[in-house]
Computed example of a mutant assay.
Amino acid sequence: MSEIDFYKRLNRLEKRRKGTDLTYNAFDSVTAGVTSFNEFDELKRTIEKWQIVSDKPSIRYAVGAMQEVSKRYTEISIETAKRIEKQLEPRLLNNHNIVTEYRLQGSVPLNIHIKGVSDVDLLVLNKSHYRTEGYLGTLRHDDIKILRELRNACTYELRQAYPAVTIDTTGAKSITLTGGSLPRDVDVVPSHWVETYEYQQQKHLYLRGVNILDNKTPTTLMNLPFKHIFYIDYKCKYYADGGLKKSIRLCKTIKADLVEEGKVIYLSSFDLASIMYHSNLENLKKGRTNALAIVLETKRFFDYLYHNPNYRNSLYTPDMTRKIFDSYQKETSLTTMSIALDKLVTEIRKDLGYLYDETIGSYPLVI
């Protein structure tokens, strides 16, 4: 008997990718403005290529876990954020005299999300206010005041614009919109630009930082979301031929299943992306003709990190803001993930009838 219940995992994988895992129907309202119930029903019924790629459950699971979600699902997520922007921008300008601009951050713009109905992080940037990196600490009190004003204005205007939507302001960094006419949850993050030292020297837009408010502390935090997106996207496109993002999705899917199965994983989506950023890109590139080679490299690299703690603990996130393994809990989660990947490869070997791991990478499977 398999160590992994692939029936349950494949069932969760399909539900996760098609949004049928939700406790509410995110598309009940035909007034959503971005899709209709008929379109959503058609999306749910669509058979994806990974579901028929093999009669072996381990292979269907591994391949499905790596694939990007349906393009239309992603478009709806982005369109939902755009709706929020179109409501907020004129209201903040006309009613509060705040000029704003908007950017997406997180898994959706990087296309490493694993849920069809994925929530969206929308940065609302006060365009009239910015800092250079050197003044972040000395002028923090003023930044807190300005960001709180923006947060309060956003909260008020969102409630006016979306009376049927649940608006949760208990989060420290974001205002969360759920339900009503919105087919996606949206996290609205009040912020302003930071001109980092690198940006001042090179003028590349992806090097600009954003300052966000931690409303509970209160304090401000400088993030580099576009630097993270740029470097992963660049490595994936030019050095891994798409394999890096597939590996990240695989890691995120395995994490989601482990959590469903009762495990606690302290590695975030950001952490998992950062880990695979340092893997062997040539091995990931082999996934273009042998999809399971990506599984092998992901397993190999997690095993390598487990056995080489000095190297593991030296690794930084792509944006260079911190070390990836900055807590003991993340190290134990690495072990849990590594074991899970070992088990997956073992099951693939059994299904293919192969004796050695390396032969899996030569299995002719293109998707």
Rank of each mutant, 00 (worst) to 15 (best):
H96E: 04
D233T: 11
Y316M: 13
F6A: 00
G242H: 08
F6Q: 00
E297H: 09
I144M: 11
R72N: 12
K227W: 06
D257P: 05
I294Q: 01
T176D: 09
R91A: 15
K252W: 02
Q160T: 10
K145S: 05
T332D: 11
E75N: 15
K286A: 08
K285G: 13
L224N: 15
I229E: 08
G242T: 09
E358S: 11
R45Q: 13
T220E: 03
L292H: 05
N94V: 07
T317A: 15
K323C: 14
L125V: 15
S333Q: 05
M66F: 06
L147V: 10
D233G: 14
N283K: 11
G106C: 07
T217L: 14
S128M: 08
H113D: 14
L284A: 02
E101A: 07
T220W: 00
E3K: 12
Y231R: 10
L139C: 09
K237G: 06
D342K: 12
G33D: 02
M276K: 07
V124H: 03
K56D: 04
H278W: 09
N211F: 07
E14V: 14
N11R: 14
A81K: 05
I98H: 03
K350Q: 12
K255G: 04
T220V: 14
R16K: 12
I52N: 07
H141N: 08
I348P: 00
L92M: 10
E195S: 05
